[in-house]
Amino acid sequence: MFLINCPYCGERDHQEFKAGGEAHIERPKQPTELSDDEWAEYLFMRKNIKGIQFERWNHAHGCRKWFNMVRDTSNDQIKLIYKMGEKPPAE
C-alpha cells in the first residue's frame, strides 16, 4: 500500500489514487499522418519497464489532478513525483 505524496494535497493513502500507465507518451498531433504501425505504437506498445519507470497517476478520490511519478517497478519504491507538464528529470 503506497503512501503517495500528491503534489497538490500531500501524502495520501494508495486507495485514493488510480494509476494511468506509462508517462510521456504524447498523443500524436496529427494522427491521420501516421501509418497503422505508428498508430499502434502510440495506442498499444509499452515499455513496461522493470526498474525505473515514468508513469502517470491520478488523485481520483481527492483533487482529481493527474501528476507524474518515477517509481522502481522492481520494488515499488517511489523515487519522485512531479506535476503534469513539468519536464521529466534526466534518467
Binding site: N58, A60, R64, K65, W66, M84, G85
Partner: peptide
C-alpha cells in the same frame, strides 16, 4: 468524467 479529465489535464492543458 475520468477520461475527459485525463485528456484535458494531460493532452490538452
Amino acid at each position: 468524467l475520468g477520461k475527459l479529465e485525463d485528456y484535458l489535464q494531460t493532452e490538452w492543458p
